[in-house]
């Protein structure tokens, strides 16, 4: 009944001067809409062509066997059943999980620690210097950094072992032992990505409500208590954001192991994305490589969903 009355009113208005104003407003809105479409069309097209379509293509290809040269052959779920029993795939997920866990935890802990230290500097000048210094590695390509670090960490000719031996410490098999190679990749990945997490925490700590901190201080709370009981809960949304983004990035780690260890020694640092690259682009098994990509994609979705679920218990938004 109400709808009918509204419609009748608007029909009456449409025939008078009020109607002309409505029509003009609608025309202006349409014009604005068209301009909006024009503005986003290039981005939308590029996302469609370079992101959405390849993703769809990967999903489709995971049901095929394709060596680039011959036409693709439909194999149904064969790629997925094969990878479920493929030890190299299972192992790569293990390696990736271990690396991701170490990288994310260390990035958050070290990034937060450094942000706290920088925040304590009274001099704005010193803060700027530290912020820039910690952020700089993020601007350099991971491949370049990995090349430099592979020279530094070289077992026989590297600077790090040279100084260790000068200090009468044993040389470490940084790149030629499983544990050493894993540790080296974690160190390099954390060092490079730290700037991003660090900047997030600097911003979060800088925006903490001053009245709350002053009140806590007046109540006689020490720095450790203040950190764990006040600051940490208040920046928990930032920690959560850093954990989600960090995990998604770390699960796709490729540059550092590819450049520094080629996945070795053996397959100790062969990550899932490396295995996808090797399977698809080097062994020319694009269908199988796509199936592994799909599994990684689904796993990342599940892990991110889990993080959101768990976050309800420890992230405080108010």
């Amino acid at each position: 009944m109400t709808t009918l009355t509204t419609r009748t009113k608007s029909l009456r208005a449409a025939s008078g001067p009020e109607g002309a104003r409505v029509r003009n407003r609608k025309r202006a809105a349409r014009r604005e809409g068209a301009f909006g479409w024009l503005m986003i069309s290039l981005s939308a097209a590029s996302i469609l062509v370079f992101t959405a379509l390849p993703i769809v293509f990967t999903f489709v290809l995971s049901f095929f066997s394709w060596d680039i040269i011959s036409p693709p052959q439909f194999v149904g779920l064969q790629n997925f059943t094969h990878l479920a029993a493929d030890q190299s795939v299972i192992h790569s997920f293990g390696v990736t999980g271990l690396l991701a866990a170490l990288i994310v935890v260390l990035q958050i802990v070290v990034g937060l620690a450094m942000a706290l230290l920088v925040q304590q500097r009274k001099s704005t000048w010193a803060r700027s210097i530290f912020r820039t210094a910690f952020f700089l590695p993020l601007l350099v390509s991971a491949a370049s950094i990995s090349i430099v670090f592979s020279y530094l960490f070289d077992d026989h000719f590297g600077v790090i072992n040279y100084y260790l031996q000068l200090l009468h410490l044993p040389a470490v098999a940084w790149l030629s032992s499983s544990a050493g190679a894993t540790a080296t990749i974690v160190i390099v990945a954390v060092w490079q990505q730290l700037g991003f997490v660090f900047i997030l925490f600097v911003a979060a700590l800088g925006s903490l409500p001053k009245d709350v901190l002053e009140a806590v201080s007046l109540d006689g709370s020490g720095p450790i208590r203040t950190f764990f009981s006040i600051k940490l809960p208040l920046i928990s949304p930032t920690i959560f954001f850093a954990a989600v983004i960090g995990l998604i990035n770390a699960m796709q780690i490729f540059d550092q192991p590819y450049v520094m260890t080629k996945g070795g020694p053996g397959d100790a640092t062969t990550t899932t994305v490396m295995l996808i690259y090797r399977t698809a682009f080097q062994n020319i098994q694009f269908g199988y490589g796509s199936a592994i990509s799909v599994v990684l994609f689904v796993l990342l979705l599940v892990l991110t969903g889990l993080q959101f679920l768990i976050s309800r218990k420890w992230v405080f938004y108010s």
């Binding site: 499983s178 080629k262 020694p265 020319i284």
Partner: peptide, 18 residues
């Protein structure tokens, strides 16, 4: 050859490490 080269690289570093 591609698969052979990849496998050789991987297994050689495995042998040298282990």
């Amino acid at each position: 050859y591609n698969a052979m080269a990849n496998a050789l690289n991987q297994r050689t570093t495995q042998a040298m490490s282990s």
